[in-house]
Amino acid sequence: MNELHIPTMAELVARGETADILFWVGCAGSFDERAQRITRDICKILHHVGIRYAILGTEENCTGDPAKRAGNEFLFQMQAMMNIQILDGYEVKKIVTACPHCFNTLKNEYPDLGGHYEVIHHTQLIQQLIDEGKLKAEGGESFKGRRITYHDPCYLGRGNDVYEAPRKALECLDAELVEMKRCRSNGLCCGAGGAQMFKEPEKGKKDINIERTEEALETQPEIIAAACPFCMTMLRDGVKIKEKEHDVHVLDIAEITARANGL
């Protein structure tokens, strides 16, 4: 990763430069080791296509999403207003993020508090780049004919009606895409949303991620494609519990794209 310099907004401003887009990394992308790999791949993609981007670095703060879902509106709004101050300070206009929860909150909930930005999810950016011919899925690992099933994150799919972008990103791989029984608007949650990620589940017969992993495994995939760091954790845990981690890989759309382009 050392060959790639990842600029911060502060740094660009000090140099008198601007960024076209802010990459909102998110807490999982910053701290979770597995999600960090997705973060780096997104940086590689941005670098590869020559987009002028920057991150907030240590100035980034939780969007407040888990607090809001858990009913702590005070904490959410404190976080939001702090972040809006920083974003507006850098005159940020456009944001790309790898986390559907950050995406939803920044896009739909910040405007009520005065933060107005064009917010896109990284799968949407990848789709745009493919449409513009800037990403071609060549020069790297071949996914031709490999069975991939895509898991819709709730806050990207049902929450914001983004169903096609991630699929488009996979379609250009010439892979064999198989849908789970519950997909798109009928997709089943991985079990992490609504702040469940940060607590134990209530008592029941089964964990939600197991239910979803079983459904994914029924499609006999080589790869389960995800687009959310929390879904990633839940599905990886599920695959491990099912003792399938050697046969089935859980990969983010960004990772698959980066690999296909040899990044």
Binding site: M1, S30, Q36, I55, G57, N61, A67, L75
Partner: peptide
């Protein structure tokens, strides 16, 4: 989790200053 968000800006117990450590 609320405490973490409030104090270190992330739902987990990581320091705010370490947020960009993945870069290096």
């Amino acid at each position: 989790m609320f405490g973490n968000v409030e104090n270190n800006g992330a739902p987990w117990k990581y320091a705010q200053a370490d947020r960009a450590n993945w870069v290096d």
